[in-house]
Structure formats: C-alpha cells, structure tokens
C-alpha cells in the first residue's frame, strides 16, 4: 500500500521526467532544450496556465468545475489595459483587476452554491457572458496603452541571466500559499470534505454554501491575476485572447492527479501538470512540429494520465 501511495504521489513527477527525457534524445534540439535559458522560457510560458490551475485545483477538489476561466482572463486583461490607459497607478490597476476576477468568481459561486445549479452549466453560461462583456468593454478592438510596469512581469532585463521574471516568483509564492491553505487550514480541509461527500460535510456543520462561494471567489481572484500575466505578455488588452484556455488549465489539474469527482488533488500535482504541458509545447516547437501535432500529443497525454490514475486505483 505504501509503495502504491508513493507511486501515486510521484506519478506526475515521473510523467514530467519522461516528457523532458523525450526531448533530450533528438540531437537537433538537445543542445538548447536542456539549457537554463530554455527552462526560463518554459517557466514563463507556464505562469498563466499554472496560476489558473491553482484556482482550478480549489474548484476541482471541491467537486466543481469552472469553464469561464479563459473569458475571465481576457476580461481582466481588458480591464487592466483600460485602467492603465486612463493613467491609474499600477497598484490600483492590480487591485481592481484581481477584484474584478473575484467578482466573476463570486457570481459563479453564488449561482452554484446559493442557487444550487450545476457548475458545468453555470460556468458555461458565464464563459459566454464574460467573453461578451470583455468585447463590449473593449469596444471590439484591442486596448493599447503606452507602457506600464506590468509589462515587465514576464521578462527579465537579462534574457540569458539567472534571475527569474516577477511572474514566476508570484506563481511560486501563490503555489506555496495555496498548498498550505489546502493542507494546513480548516477551510482547506473543508474544501476536500465538500468534494468527497458534500452531504456529510453539511451534516458535520461545515458551511458548505459559504465555503463554495469562497472557493469560486478565490479562484476568480487567481484567474484575474492570470489575466494580468496575459496582459503583461501581450502588452495590449485583447478581448479575444485565451479562448479555450480553460481546457488547458483543467487538463493541467487532471494530469496532476486530481479527480473530476472531487475530493482528490494537490497543488504540486497541478503545477507539474501545467509544466508538463508547457514542456510539451516548448519541445514540440523546437522540433518544428506544427501546433496540430502538439494538440494531438497533449490530448494523448491527458488520456494517458487519467488511464494511469485508473490503473493505480484498481487493485
């Protein structure tokens, strides 16, 4: 049993090593693929999906789902760009964008927990509503601005140096905080309890409605922050960005060992899941494989991860 536990914990890690090993073999990319500079690029490419995956981990562990992430990221980016355009100070921009993301999460949470509607359907609705709102807000065009300190979050002054971009540090800090929250706080354990057996949680006096609203709101705040990262990368507010990104984010969480049924999942797993996908994208790019092939590979990896998980659980 302990051996299996260990395997379950190491599963995503082994997956990551396999993927890295895969791209370390072909001589045409080996030289560059394993460099620190490339690692930095992969890490930066992961930041948006990984921050989204933090929020999604909370939601999936609680037995829910959120399909509106991509739209929320676009919406937050547009809001951020508009505020920068109007000359707001950076701290205020960051605050308002995160709050607007949290607001969308709050709406999702209230509809799901308060009105007892299916998360899949509610967030399918908000996926469309929020995307429309982003386009409305941006007047159907990209929102340009001169410059902002936010633009520097995803790069380092010295491209080849050792220093990591601010976005990576923010991700690291949030990942540690989320992991501690899930593991060490009463509220965090209640997230697991709700995902494992909501009726029991309610019976034992867990405030399930309040906790679920909190989960979606906190996740929304994280999605808002991911929107800022997106803005930092594009340097324009684009209302059409991140279409379908929710699927990448959900895939990262699932590859990381979470169960869509709820009650199972770890921050570390989700982070590795996000990293596996970024490595695949980066490696495939260097191999010169077209995006169509990358899509197929990522699809296969998702199914393989779930299949391996099923094998682990079976006796």
């Amino acid at each position: 049993m302990n051996a299996r536990n260990l395997l379950a914990k190491l599963g995503p890690f082994i997956g990551l090593l396999l993927v890295i090993a895969l791209f370390s073999v072909p001589t045409e990319v080996r030289g560059y693929f394993l460099t620190y500079a490339n690692f930095k690029i992969i890490l930066t490419q992961t930041v948006i999906v990984a921050i989204g995956a933090l929020g999604m981990t909370l939601i999936i562990v609680s037995g829910g789902i959120d399909l509106s992430v991509g739209s929320t990221i676009a919406f937050s980016g547009v809001v951020g760009a508009l505020l920068i355009q109007r000359g707001w100070p950076t701290a205020a921009v960051v605050g308002v964008v995160i709050v607007s993301g949290a607001g969308i999460g709050l709406l999702n949470g209230v509809a799901i927990a308060g009105l007892r509607m299916m998360p899949f359907i509610i967030t399918l609705g908000t996926l469309s509503i929020v995307r429309g709102a982003a386009q409305l807000l941006a007047n159907n065009e990209t929102v340009n601005y001169d410059s902002s300190p936010i633009n520097e979050w995803m790069t380092t002054p010295d491209q080849a140096g050792w220093s990591l971009p601010a976005g990576a540090w923010i991700l690291l800090g949030l990942a540690v905080a989320t992991a501690l929250f899930l593991r060490q706080t009463v509220l965090g354990r209640h997230v697991f309890a709700i995902g494992s057996n909501e009726a029991t949680a309610r019976l034992c006096g867990v405030r399930t409605v309040r906790t679920k609203i909190m989960i979606y709101t906190a996740a929304g705040a994280l999605f808002g922050l991911a929107g800022l990262m997106q803005l930092s990368r594009l340097r324009v507010g684009d209302p059409t960005v991140a279409v379908g990104l929710e699927l990448d984010i959900i895939a990262a969480v699932i590859i990381g060992g979470a169960s869509l049924g709820g009650g199972v999942g770890t921050v570390l797993g989700s982070m590795i899941g996000a990293f596996i996908m970024a490595v695949l994208r980066n490696g495939s790019g260097q191999m010169g494989w077209p995006t169509s092939v990358q899509q197929i590979i990522i699809g296969v990896v998702i199914i393989a991860a779930v299949f391996l998980d099923r094998l682990r659980q079976a006796k």
Binding site: Q184, T185, R189, F192, N197, A199, A201, L203, G205, G263
Partner: peptide, 29 residues
C-alpha cells in the same frame, strides 16, 4: 447517526471524526 453511512471517503479517519470541529488557531489546523 444515519442509516446510510455518511463519511467523506477520500478524507482520512481523523479528518472524518473531527470534520466540522477541527481544533485551530485563526483557521490554522
């Protein structure tokens, strides 16, 4: 105590027993 057992299957034994009444300081378990 209900006829249909009401445990959270993924949570540990102690977490099930203490669910809803976890000792904590400011939310820290």
């Amino acid at each position: 105590i209900h006829q249909e057992l009401s445990l959270a299957p993924h949570l540990s034994v102690w977490e099930n027993i203490m669910l809803g009444a976890e000792p904590h300081t400011a939310g820290w378990l």
